[in-house]
C-alpha cells in the first residue's frame, strides 16, 4: 500500500470515528439536557441505548476494509470523542467564563455506558458488513483462490484422462 493510500485510509478511519462520536454526543446531550436541544429526541434511556448502537453499527459497516483490531480502536476513539464532547457541553459556560453554578450532572455519568454499546455496535456492524459488503482484498483473495482451484481441476483432469489401449501412461 502506497503512502497516499495509507494516508487516505487513516484519514477515513479518523473521520468516521470522530463523526460517530459527534453524532452520539449530539443525541446524548439532546436527550439528557432536552431544554437546550433544538429538537426533542424523547426518552433519554431509549436514546442512550439505541443511538450509540446504531451509529456504531454504521461505523462498523464503514470500517469493513480495516482489521478487527482497528474496529475496536475506532470504537474507543468514538467513545472518547463522545465523552469529551459531553464534558465540553457541561463545562462550556466555565470554559467561556460565564458559569453561574456547578455544571449540570443529570445523566452525565451514563456516558460511561457508551463504550460497551459503541464497541458492540461497531463489531456487529463490521461482521455484517463483511457479509454484505465484502472488502476488495477479500474479493481479490477469493478470486485468486477460485482461479487456483480451477487450474488444479484442469491439471487433475489432464492427469486422469484415460489412456488409449496399447499406449503407456506418461508421468
Amino acid at each position: 500500500m502506497g503512502l497516499r493510500e495509507k494516508l487516505q485510509s487513516t484519514g477515513l478511519f479518523l473521520l468516521w470515528s470522530v463523526l460517530c462520536g459527534v453524532i452520539v454526543a449530539a443525541f446524548f446531550v439532546s436527550a439528557f439536557f432536552a431544554d437546550f436541544g433544538p429538537i426533542q429526541v424523547g426518552d433519554p434511556g431509549t436514546v442512550i441505548l439505541f443511538m450509540p448502537l446504531f451509529a456504531a453499527f454504521i461505523l462498523g459497516l464503514l470500517l469493513v476494509d480495516f482489521e478487527l483490531v482497528h474496529t475496536v480502536l475506532a470504537a474507543l476513539l468514538a467513545t472518547g470523542v463522545a465523552i469529551g464532547l459531553v464534558l465540553g457541553f457541561m463545562f462550556g459556560p466555565a470554559i467561556v467564563g460565564v458559569e453561574v453554578g456547578p455544571p449540570p450532572y443529570q445523566g452525565a455519568f451514563s456516558a460511561i455506558l457508551l463504550f460497551p454499546l459503541i464497541l458492540l455496535g461497531t463489531v456487529v456492524g463490521r461482521a455484517i458488513g463483511e457479509r454484505i459488503l465484502p472488502p476488495q482484498a477479500i474479493l481479490d483473495r477469493q478470486k485468486a483462490l477460485m482461479a487456483e482451484t480451477r487450474e488444479w481441476h484442469e491439471q487433475l483432469a489432464r492427469v486422469e484422462r484415460p489412456v488409449p489401449p496399447g499406449q503407456d501412461r506418461k508421468p
Binding site: 439536557f33 437546550f36 433544538p38 464532547l85 459556560p93 467561556v96
Partner: peptide, 12 residues
Amino acid sequence: MYAASSAKFVDY
C-alpha cells in the same frame, strides 16, 4: 445539533 445545544447552554 450539538453546537446548537452548547451555544444555548452558554447563552443561558
